[in-house]
Amino acid sequence: MHSPARTEPSTGPMPASKRTRVRRSAMFMDTTVTIEVAHRDEEPAALDAIERAMRWFERVEATCSRFDPESELRGLTAQAGVPVHVSALLIEPLAFALALAEETNGAFDPTVGGRLEAAGFDRNYRTGARAGAALESTEGSYRDVEIDRAASTVTLHRRLVLDLGAVAKGFAVDLAARELASFERVAVFAGGDVLVRAPAGEPYEIGIQHPRDPDALLAVLGLSEGAVCTSGDYQRTSAAGHHIVEPGTGQAVGGVVSTTVVAPTAMLADGLSTAAFVLGVPAGLRLVEANGGEGLLVTRDLERVMTSSFGRLAL
């Protein structure tokens, strides 16, 4: 489960013109989701729209959760070796995760679920129940997963547990934001993921949590359109280490303590941020840059390393 650092929701200045601002929060995917919309006209439908947007988190969680024995994702583990028909809500983020795995040569790998379970990340946050697949072996890699888009099927060529924690939350943010396309200002916050859309010249201010000082911000970004994701080593830990593990060994990763990625979609920002966390400096930054994102990495010595244009986003 990818549970990135908290990116503080701090809304930018609202212009003097009349805008109705509506904001609601709910708990999904083990994090607080906050959605805010603002519209120049009276918008009685704003609450309904936010409600519809929230439903995407519910759907994505029900489909892609590693901790829910009833999820489609979990169902795949039980049917290894045969093509299983899955919904678009599973195949789309999985296809993205596999492409990211391919691009990082497995440094990022969505088949890391079994090793996360072995490291103790196996409890459902709602029920407290353990959700382990009791795998015979935690070996296997993204190469053991085959998807057929035309047939909408996924085949696991060995018994393994997928983990889409690093992309599914971002995907839910993207789906929720699209539901709110008619609003002038939209912000969707979900743990370390933030997506904003605002008129040019009226950007949102987004604070990035400092990885070691809970009261400090690492940076404040001004963003009119796009997504920011911050991954850190400090939020969720088990006895065996923190929650981002190296796919090959199941060990917690070292090198950097925080990565922040700005990208056009939250799924892209989420995936790149997690992959960059594993890759560290400089490979992680290269990956972010090659995929059109901007990134800020903080090393264990609290040195900041960033892509060439990241500084332009900072306020």
Binding site: E92, E103, D174, A263, L268, G271, N291
Partner: peptide
């Protein structure tokens, strides 16, 4: 990756 994420 960018195209995949928006097409999704």
């Amino acid at each position: 990756l960018a195209a995949l994420s928006s097409a999704a």
